[in-house]
Computed example of a mutant assay.
Amino acid sequence: MVDLELDSRRAIYQQIADSPGVHFRALLDELDYAKGTIQYQLRWLADEGLVEVSNDGQYTRYYPAADFDDADQAVMNALRREYSRRVIAHLIADGPLSTTALSNRLGKSQSTVSWHLSNLAESNLVTKQRDGRRVVYEVSDADRVKYLYTVYQQSFTDRVVDRILGLWEGY
């Protein structure tokens, strides 16, 4: 039997379960525990196999063990980044789209959008295809993304994406 009797351990685990892909700073902001307490309990939870750790290149993110395979973690890692989440939303709602089209929709420079697209492609979340003289992108597994976004929508608090995707009714 796993020991989640400590209030701090249980609260940290519950926050991870409620917001899979949460990173350390967000846990620190959300919970009323000292930095060292959160670090210690995260290590304990990981050592006990209750929490899996994923690095998205920018943050170390935490997931309830056995609930998220590598593909789910890659999706959640992307959804936890604001502009990656918005790129994905536009691709699902209006895709396939070019970097220029996405840049116009997001109000961001093409280089910024290109950076996000490169990261998403590296994680196998988007594919790119040549369409004449331009390259267009689309989401690789839109159903998986829609499902995870819908299930964990409350933990994203991104009303822009909610409007773009109409809350993905039907999941």
Rank of each mutant, 00 (worst) to 15 (best):
V2P: 13
D3K: 07
D3I: 12
R10Q: 13
I12M: 04
I16R: 00
A17N: 05
A17Y: 05
A17I: 02
P20C: 02
G21E: 00
H23P: 00
H23A: 02
F24C: 02
R25G: 00
R25Y: 04
L27T: 03
L27Y: 02
L27M: 04
L28S: 09
D29I: 01
E30W: 01
L31A: 01
Y33T: 08
A34V: 15
A34S: 14
G36M: 10
G36V: 13
R43K: 14
R43S: 12
W44H: 13
L45N: 11
L45V: 09
E48T: 09
E48L: 12
G49E: 11
L50C: 09
V51R: 14
G57H: 11
Y59W: 14
T60I: 15
R61W: 04
R61M: 13
P64C: 04
A65H: 13
D67W: 06
D67N: 09
D67Y: 07
F68P: 07
F68A: 11
D70A: 15
D70K: 10
D70V: 15
A71E: 15
Q73N: 07
M76H: 00
M76W: 03
R81S: 11
R81D: 15
R81W: 02
Y83N: 12
Y83Q: 05
Y83R: 05
S84N: 10
S84F: 01
R86T: 03
R86L: 07
V87Q: 00
V87R: 04
A89N: 07
H90T: 05
L91N: 03
I92W: 13
A93D: 13
A93E: 12
A93H: 07
D94L: 10
G95F: 06
L97Y: 11
T99P: 03
T100F: 13
T100H: 14
A101F: 04
A101N: 13
L102E: 08
S103L: 05
N104D: 14
N104M: 06
L106F: 09
L106S: 10
G107E: 06
K108P: 02
Q110L: 03
Q110T: 15
T112C: 07
V113D: 04
S114G: 11
W115F: 14
H116P: 02
L117Q: 03
L117S: 05
L117M: 08
L117V: 14
A121Q: 15
S123V: 00
N124E: 10
N124D: 11
L125G: 00
L125W: 00
V126N: 01
V126T: 07
V126Q: 02
K128N: 08
K128L: 03
K128T: 11
Q129M: 06
Q129S: 11
D131V: 15
D131S: 13
G132Q: 06
R133K: 12
R133N: 12
R134N: 10
V135H: 06
V135P: 01
V135K: 09
V135S: 10
V136W: 01
V139T: 14
V139Q: 08
D141T: 06
D141E: 13
A142T: 09
V145I: 08
Y149V: 04
Y149A: 07
T150V: 05
Y152C: 05
Y152N: 13
Q153F: 03
Q153K: 15
Q154I: 08
Q154Y: 10
S155R: 08
S155H: 09
S155L: 05
F156L: 12
F156E: 06
T157H: 14
V161Y: 02
V161W: 00
D162P: 10
R163G: 08
I164E: 04
L165K: 00
G166N: 11
G166T: 02
L167E: 12
G170K: 12
G170W: 10
